[in-house]
């Protein structure tokens, strides 16, 4: 089956001599929900800029659904919908007009474009704002409008560069649900994000870029499995005077009512509860201390920079 996106030996050197990409290879399968992660300045946005024709590549090959962006640029571009990191719309135009114009650039008739705009604006809760000029929308609404704009021509591959940056938690969750539905309907989605919880929850496959190189390209599950242990925070019913001894689990006290426990991969959570029952400690609630992927990500980037 043709890949949704195939990148081979992609290089980018900017005019000022800055080397942003040092020969990256990536492939994203059709229907995948793919995360492109990396620290600031790693080369994620440069890669997306090249895929979407906003940045000229220095060398390498990019193919979208089998269409080379150099030789079949129109077919390749027609497959992509893009949500850039920065706002890039005319702030003085009503949002419905922005969407209809975008459809027009893909050769969609105006009458059809208006009905598509209604569909996506309703889906993203912006229909009542359709006559508002874009400038008057809140930050979250602007992002949703840009998602609607990216979907106007029914792209097969949706690329989202930090879609939830600056979006409040409620809107972020709504956006996650929306993106999950799109993916379930068969759309391939690539996203970059600094919220690694987002990548862990949404994406099946992950690539990590650092200093212009792909340092990891695997499934989310395989990556998470590499984590040796997980840390949980336990809120206790009553104060514990001294640190309990729990078999196989490292325990630290945060305060008298809160414990931090490391659980080894494969040991399972039930072994922890068995151990707690033996000590007579009652647990009110329990949560992950840190996001697992975040922990791995920091570890990998740190290992590379301080070998």
């Amino acid at each position: 089956m043709t890949c949704a996106l195939e990148i081979t030996n992609l290089h980018k050197i900017y005019r000022n001599g800055f080397v942003a990409l040092r020969g990256i290879d990536l492939h994203v399968e059709q229907g995948d929900f793919f995360a492109l992660l990396g620290p600031n300045g790693a080369g994620k946005s440069t890669a997306i800029g090249i895929i979407t024709s906003l940045i000229n590549k220095t060398d390498g090959r990019v193919s979208i659904y089998g269409h080379d962006i150099d030789t079949h640029f129109a077919e390749a571009k027609s497959c992509i919908g893009v949500l850039p990191q920065e706002f890039n719309f005319n702030i003085w135009e009503p949002i419905e007009e922005i969407l209809v114009n975008q459809a027009g650039y893909y050769g969609i008739e105006r009458s059809d474009a208006y009905s598509r705009a209604e569909h996506w604006l309703r889906q993203l809760g912006l229909w009542d704002k359709r006559h508002e000029i874009a400038r008057n929308l809140s930050g979250g609404m602007k992002r949703r409008m840009m998602i609607a704009r990216a979907l106007m021509h029914d792209p097969r591959l949706l690329i989202l560069d930090e879609p939830t940056a600056g979006v409040d938690i409620e809107n972020r969750r709504t956006m996650w649900d929306f993106l999950t539905r799109l993916n379930q309907q068969g759309m391939t989605i690539i996203l970059t994000t600094h919220y690694l919880e987002e990548a862990e929850n949404l994406c099946r496959n992950i690539a990590i870029i650092d200093e212009g190189r792909v340092i990891e390209h695997t499934s989310t599950r395989a990556l998470i499995n590499r984590l040796g242990n997980e840390t949980f925070v336990l809120d206790l019913e009553s104060r514990v005077a001294e640190l309990p001894h729990l078999d196989c689990h490292a325990v630290r006290a945060i305060d008298g009512f809160t414990l931090e426990v490391d659980i080894d991969q494969g040991a399972g959570i039930s072994s922890l509860f068995d151990a707690l029952n033996h000590t007579g400690i009652k647990v009110l609630s329990m949560r992950n201390k840190t996001n697992r992927l975040e922990q791995l990500f920091m570890q990998m980037v740190d290992d590379r920079r301080h070998p």
């Binding site: 979407t52 024709s53 906003l54 640029f73 129109a74 077919e75 571009k77 027609s78 992509i80 893009v82 850039p84 920065e86 706002f87 890039n88 719309f89 005319n90 702030i91 922005i98 114009n101 975008q102 650039y105 893909y106 050769g107 704009r149």
Partner: peptide
């Protein structure tokens, strides 16, 4: 220039419009 300044020229650049 306005399209460049507000970056909405990108709407056209990402599209297949020749």
């Amino acid at each position: 220039f306005g399209a460049k300044f507000q970056r909405h020229i990108e709407e056209l650049m990402v599209s297949p419009t020749p």
